[in-house]
Design a protein around this nucleic acid. Structure first.
Lengths: 332, 332
DNA sequence: TATATTTCCACAAACGTTTGTGTTGGTGAT
DNA sequence: ATCACCAACACAAACGTTTGTGGAAATATA
């Protein structure tokens, strides 16, 4: 089974201490010759370092933990991609844990697993942490950072898109295309994210002095079904000429239900979605979106997590931008 | 920072040994009264167990590792879901690692990270392990099992769908609908999976004494783009009346390119995909698929991984079945 | 040659648990 | 009163590393 540093020491005729230093590449502690002997012995024995022992004594680990919510939202992949890239560069390992969606217990479990392992840092992707777990996270004394979610009142440091701006930008885009009656669909209005986007939408409508109706905003949970529900709520004969979907998946729901209603997108109805993942490109018509920089979010996440100074850090917005595709066109 | 078992011992006025036994719930070693005192002290100090220390002495961990390839295939989610369910039941933790796609280095790195941590078991999801890593995996003496991939010559134990059967079943389904000229698109013909499916396709065609043409099978990598490429290869005026796509995403590529060619699915061309993820339901027309039981794969994976006897275990196929949706219809 | 410096290495403590083995005091049987 | 026994706990070793310190040999300095 596992060969230890002692076995290597014996085989190479040196002390365990020397083996340790050779294997972790601390120069100025051994000669070239012994280094070679040690390496040869290690290879011969198929040595694998025992991370538990290392972490026990060094009290730090080279792995950072990513906790994601198990939604079917697919942008997490992009964020993780960015994280991995940075981890690679910095020779760090990343482990990923699923916490359920709004499941306090699962969140706690995931949190405990990584805290017990005393990881280098924790990145929480799209996790709406249950308040009962705030303390657990805080008292662990491990750097952490939320990604792709916003908090009020400096509750936690985070990196996200500016959700207000997202709502605002989507709306003004549509307004400037001549739309007047614009729906806002399928966002979770209990979430801060949903509220910010809605606020952005309202601000834009206000600024252009466009009246709105409560019927135009539909509650939901960013899911596909919420998109079809929203469209059903608007109805076959809707007065809306455009609608903003809270996610790509929700937009697809709207598209499909619109088609079922025989309302043509984009001719009868313009749709712009929020996120801009690959889904936008594989459906027809392709969906015009407010595209978020998820990969960048992952990269910046790693950078600020590792950069220290998280205490002074509060929040950072990554860029967004309209990606024009086919699902939205000018009106009137 | 971290309170240790010793701190608790001191506060509770007992020995560390007793604290350990209380906290890990070994009865018959302490009185109710001291147990209460220990628990109270632990809570008061915000104690978090040091997993490194535990694993160091016990030489086992309660976490199983899942290594996934970072494809944009979305079935991994379902498999992980099944895994998580079982882990929950058995009070195990699961950590997920990304290994790149056919990237020997990344595979090695992921493998090493989990081996060094001496996890309880390793589940490799859709990982086509580079032969250079075979030894690493084998010599670790950690139970492992591949999921959603097949191997020749008993190279590794795995649980997967029967890929030959998938190809066969997709083909006979189409044949019995009256199709004669059937394409086989976008599978990676260098992969064993691709070859098995192709063999199944050929067997079916043979059994029905249907001639085939090399032009009808297109190489690829299960990706969206491979679907559109395949369709381009078949051409606007294709003689094919049906095509089997190697994945849902590839099927969507075919759908879109077909639409671009103005060939109507399913009227002009029937499409059946392999996988049957949610993607099949959110595009129009909905895609008829050979649906795999990914969740079951995850569940069975955990069960056999934990069941021991992996040495006697060779392979296990999980169920498949046609899910009829809208993209395929009778011909002639 | 004598001393100082450097190079290379070994010794041993420490990290926070678990767990086998002692030890104590108390209870019941003889 | 003696013994055996049991409950309830403490002691200490062990797990595989890292790292501060000390020391011998080799080299440089005077």
């Amino acid at each position: 089974m596992g060969a230890t540093i002692k076995d290597i020491a014996e085989l190479a005729g040196v002390s365990p201490a020397t083996v340790s230093r050779v294997l972790s590449g601390q120069s100025d502690f051994y000669s070239e010759k012994t280094a070679r002997r040690v390496h040869r012995a290690a290879k011969k024995l198929g040595y694998q370092k025992n991370t538990s022992a290392v972490e026990l004594v060094t009290k730090t680990s080279k792995t950072i933990a990513v906790i994601v919510s198990s939604t079917q939202t697919n942008f997490a992949d992009q964020i993780i991609d960015g994280i991995q890239e940075q981890a690679m560069q910095k020779d760090l390992n990343v482990i990923i844990l699923y916490a359920g969606e709004k499941n306090a217990k699962l969140q706690k479990r995931a949190l405990e697993t990584v805290i017990e392992r005393s990881v280098l840092g924790i990145l929480l992707v799209a996790i709406d942490l249950d308040p009962s777990n705030d303390n657990l996270l805080r008292s662990a004394n491990i750097p952490f950072l939320f990604l792709s979610i916003c908090f009020r009142n400096h509750r936690f440091p985070f990196i996200s898109s500016d959700d207000f701006k997202i709502g605002y930008q989507a709306t003004t885009y549509l307004i400037e295309k001549g739309h007047v009656k614009i729906g806002f669909a399928a966002a979770d209005l209990e979430s801060f994210t949903g509220q910010l986007r809605l606020a952005g939408y309202r601000r834009a409508m206000d600024e252009y002095q466009l009246p709105t109706s409560p019927d135009w905003v539909s509650d939901g949970d960013f899911a596909y079904e919420d998109g079809v529900l929203a469209m059903k709520q608007y109805g076959e004969e809707t007065q809306l000429t455009a609608v903003i979907a809270s996610s790509d998946l929700a937009a697809i729901g709207i598209l499909n239900q619109a088609q079922a209603f025989n309302v043509k997108v984009p001719n009868d109805l313009s749709v712009v979605s929020i996120d801009g993942t690959y889904l936008c490109n594989i459906v027809r018509p392709r969906i015009t979106s407010v595209t978020q920089s998820f990969r960048e979010m992952g990269i910046k996440g790693m950078q600020t997590l590792l950069g220290g100074k998280l205490d002074q850090f509060d929040l950072l917005y990554t860029g967004i931008g309209i990606t024009e595709r086919e699902s939205a066109k000018s009106h009137g």
